[in-house]
Amino acid sequence: MATIGNVKKIVSRAISISMPSIAFFGRLVFAFVFILSAIQAYAEHYGDGGPLEKTVGPIVNVVTKLGSKVLTFFTGMQVVSFDVRLLEFTFISAKGTAGLWFIFGGSIPAYFLLVTQVISTLIPLPTNSHDFAQNLTLIGALLFYIGYKHAIDELLEAEKKKKKEE
């Protein structure tokens, strides 16, 4: 007859064996959200320039033209024109690459995803509250993951120190 202690041991062992694979598939699904987001942004990017081109592009063009005239007048140097589409493509590729990198674990890809998510939330200024809320949810999930990853790393480090002392 199985006692509660035996059941706890069986469940604990099953969880400890399956937990790495569950964590891997969880990271895979979470990274899939960012990869699909990068693909969608890439599809929007070349249609009419994307949201960053629409919101920030005219401002950058005016500042570049004005800065070029002022800098040329005072120093004789000329400002090189800046294409916002290149900046937008850089953010898209960073999000896709970090999403692929996130699958294998670690906190560095989570930081890259956090930075790209914050930039894509704040700069294009989302038009509806649903996009803004979804972006904030992803930022919160990334912050939770980073905190959880650091807590696990500290716990493993404390266990190593404890084993060395014994």
Rank of each mutant, 00 (worst) to 15 (best):
D83T: 03
K95E: 14
T72Q: 14
A94Y: 06
A98R: 01
T97Q: 01
W101I: 09
G99N: 04
T97G: 12
G76Q: 09
L86Q: 01
L100D: 03
G99T: 08
S81H: 01
G76A: 08
G105I: 00
V80M: 12
R85N: 14
G76Y: 08
F102A: 01
V84K: 08
G99M: 06
S93D: 04
A98C: 02
F73P: 00
L86G: 02
R85Q: 11
D83W: 05
I92M: 07
A98Y: 07
R85D: 09
F89Y: 09
I103D: 04
F104Q: 10
T90F: 14
F102M: 08
F82C: 00
R85L: 08
G76I: 05
A98P: 00
G99L: 01
S81K: 11
G96I: 09
A98E: 00
K95C: 15
A94H: 08
T97N: 05
E88I: 06
V79R: 06
L86D: 02
I103H: 04
T72Y: 15
R85M: 11
F73W: 15
I103Q: 06
G76V: 09
G76M: 10
I92T: 02
A94V: 10
R85Y: 03
G99A: 09
F89D: 07
M77K: 13
A98L: 00
F73Q: 10
T97D: 04
I92F: 06
V80Y: 07
G105F: 02
S81R: 11
W101T: 04
G96F: 09
W101C: 06
I92A: 07
G99K: 04
T90N: 09
I103K: 07
T90Y: 11
S81T: 08
D83G: 11
G96A: 10
F73M: 13
A98K: 07
R85P: 06
F89I: 12
L86M: 07
V84F: 01
T90D: 15
L86F: 12
A98H: 01
V79A: 11
L86R: 04
L87D: 04
D83I: 01
V84Y: 10
W101Y: 01
T75K: 05
G99P: 02
G96L: 13
F73Y: 15
A94N: 05
R85I: 01
T72M: 10
T97A: 15
E88V: 01
